[in-house]
Design a protein around this nucleic acid. Structure first.
Lengths: 236, 236
DNA sequence: ATAAATTCCTGCGTTTTGACGGATTTTATC
DNA sequence: GATAAAATCCGTCAAAACGCAGGAATTTAT
């Protein structure tokens, strides 16, 4: 699974908060201790239930973060790309943090062990601060997600998911820069594969999106946004 | 709205992470700058959309944290009690953090302004660390909540909510130590008032809970837990 | 290039959920 | 303690969502 080390100095992910503090004198030691991991497509690199081995960063690639359990269904709680952090949800407490992570495409990951990370956080408060802000923002997103799944219809949730993917991964040549199966979209939107298929078919008919197998392209961003926003502020 | 200052030295909330660091020499200055706020029942003290004024702690009382928007419905994202932290979701970024907060019963709150908080976090890294862990745990809970609302039936969600309330607030003399309306329970469980009423009626019939108006008492914890767990690990 | 496997799609019946209306009970206020 | 207001409760109905089954299309492996 390992390969030659991905070098932070040459890394292009400016949003990574290791990269952000690379000029700190102490960082050199910690960076030397990181591991580089090569993941094949759909390979699982964090297993639910097993202790999480520190913090991962995506050097290059894409990954999905999932929770399983209820009725064997899977919930994708987050999609990640270059520079994003994955894993580590606190230590000391005996609680288990049940998340799983899969590479969506071939990806290169950087891993800092819990020990290395702990030292880093103790000695470089700025990183602790950044991590704190990161979790605060993720918490906010997650709470928005709760509301979305609780209040929106299936159609709205699928549209919202497509727009989110567009914002996060972008489009080139008219198609989204990530290939998710209908099942994966449903696992993210909190519904079933069939429903996603139906909504996508319907959106195709209305010429709001186009689809060529797994490749999806958003055609009318504004119209899709409008369909969600309409309901958002409609107080009966 | 203000009253005499709630004194940290005399505070009994050992889970509060201000209290935890009270022996730090610098803390004295920051504690002097905090404001004490008295909230009446159902009074709103954080308004959605308005900038959040730093960090609040519940000195005594209970509060609900909500998000509104979609179809005018309300989603309770968190219930809080003595010692819990509320508010503050990062600064610097121009993003708005849309949360609202209401006192569920008469409550005394401690408020640290963003400025005071910022100084505290810069000068006492241990507090930043604790806040980071706090958000990491809340994120985990929120992600579990996403899965719960996405995968559980209405009945299961209501049972899960009741068991959560039992764990968080406890029971005395056979009744839960918090009074929520059916509407509030539905806002937390992500369903409607009517559904909650039906589930509660049904649970009463089965003698799993008892109800005297708003006062609810859990009678058969194990049976209720079992009803949820059964489905959790049932892979078809 | 071909076979196998996976993914995608559609129709249809069933279940679940949510919305409305109105009666009853509880709670709040003076 | 009387009155008003709010919350609870129940029945009915329609819409939404789901699950299954069978076939088409696409992707992956050999």
């Amino acid at each position: 699974m390992r390969k030659e080390k991905a070098e932070c100095e040459k890394c292009v992910n400016e949003n990574c908060f290791i990269k952000k503090h690379i000029h700190n004198a102490e960082m050199k030691n910690y960076i030397e201790q990181k591991h580089t991991i090569l993941c094949k497509k759909s390979q699982q690199f964090i297993i639910e239930g097993a202790p999480v081995h520190g913090l991962y960063f995506i050097y290059k690639g894409k990954a999905k973060i999932v929770k399983t359990g209820i009725n064997g269904r899977e919930q994708i709680v987050r999609l990640t790309k270059n520079g994003d952090a994955i894993g580590f949800r606190g230590f000391g407490t005996s609680k288990k943090y049940l998340i799983g992570a899969y590479a969506i495409e071939e990806s290169i990951l950087c891993n800092f062990s819990t020990e290395t990370l702990m030292k880093m956080l103790q000695n470089i408060p700025e990183i602790t601060f950044d991590l704190m802000l990161f979790y605060a923002e993720e918490l906010n997103k997650s709470e928005n997600n709760v509301r979305k799944i609780a209040h929106m219809s299936v159609r709205e949730r699928v549209i919202d998911t497509l727009l989110y993917i567009l914002r996060k991964f972008g489009q080139t040549d008219g198609y989204l820069n990530i290939e998710l199966s209908r099942k994966e979209i449903s696992d993210f939107a909190g519904t079933t594969e069939e429903q996603v298929i139906r909504v996508i078919s319907s959106l195709k008919k209305d010429a709001l999106i186009k689809a060529k197998g797994k490749q999806l392209g958003i055609l009318k961003v504004e119209k899709l946004q409008k369909e969600i926003l309409e309901h958002k502020y409609l107080f009966k």
